[in-house]
């Protein structure tokens, strides 16, 4: 199989597209639940004053009704075009932190499709989907930037 067969021009045309920014209010109890579930030890995290570094995972994704979920439980990501490979695995995640997230923060979360490319893996072709994430406060103060990749096989 050549390296150009899987990714069509139509799939590539989605690269660079952004979703609408999501506004999220972070509550103390959101942070407390995350901190309890992950086994945090720092008191400010357990009390919900400040969020642990990776608290923002999935923050700003739309909360969809049950009948819009796929059989695997997940919702389709409107940023990711339909791919010829269906099994999705977590890849790499790289985050640059500017300031912690705190209880009561009003955040603006922007996501975009940063890249799609394919590679030949040991057991067949892989498609790498790279999503960008930018979180700012409603006042425009930078909070964090992230690139997260998912691998379809």
């Amino acid at each position: 199989m050549t390296m150009t067969e899987l990714l069509t021009d139509d799939i590539r045309s989605h690269i660079g597209r952004s979703g609408p920014p999501a506004r999220v209010t972070v509550t103390r109890v959101d942070i407390q639940k995350y901190s309890a579930a992950t086994g945090q030890t720092r008191q400010a995290f357990l009390d919900g004053d400040e969020a642990p570094p990776l608290f923002h995972f999935n923050l700003g994704l739309p909360v969809l009704p049950l009948d819009q979920l796929r059989p695997d439980g997940l919702a389709d990501d409107p940023l990711i075009p339909e791919l010829p490979l269906k099994r999705i695995m977590a890849g790499t995640c790289e985050t640059t932190f500017h300031r912690p997230i705190r209880a009561g923060d009003e955040l603006v979360v922007t996501r975009w499709l940063d890249d799609i490319y394919e590679k030949q893996g040991g057991s067949g072709p892989l498609i790498f989907v790279v999503l960008g994430l930018k979180i700012e406060t409603a006042g425009g103060e930078p909070v964090l930037d992230e690139l997260i990749s998912r691998i379809a096989r």
């Binding site: 030890t41 720092r42 790499t92 790289e94 932190f97």
Partner: peptide, 18 residues
């Protein structure tokens, strides 16, 4: 990392691969 660095340092970046 947070336990090691204490409260006066800050995590600037973090990258991991599954």
């Amino acid at each position: 990392v947070v336990d090691w660095m204490g409260e006066s340092a800050r995590l600037k970046s973090f990258k991991y691969s599954n």
